[in-house]
Amino acid sequence: MNEIKKIVKDYILEEFLPGEDPAGLADETPLVSGGILDSMATIKMAAFLEKKYGVQIEAHEMNTKNFNTIASLASLVQAKLGGK
């Protein structure tokens, strides 16, 4: 789980927040309501997770509940991997 969080965090920092202080991005930092993950970024994020973990993310799963924090994203991936 922590490994997934780290990978997700690194991806967000590299892709969406270049130059930002990594310490400012916590597991519970709001990503959607905080304006970091808009629709375009959500699509990129989903594509990244699908490619990285070989999971399929459905359209209805691309919601605030699953995508709003690094922790919830990791939980989503974990659940998908566990369900395989």
Partner: peptide, 15 residues
């Protein structure tokens, strides 16, 4: 505008 942002990125900030 969206396609431009998708290609070139959009500045996002934490604080």
């Amino acid at each position: 505008n969206s396609l431009y942002e998708a290609k070139h990125g959009r500045k996002r900030i934490l604080k």
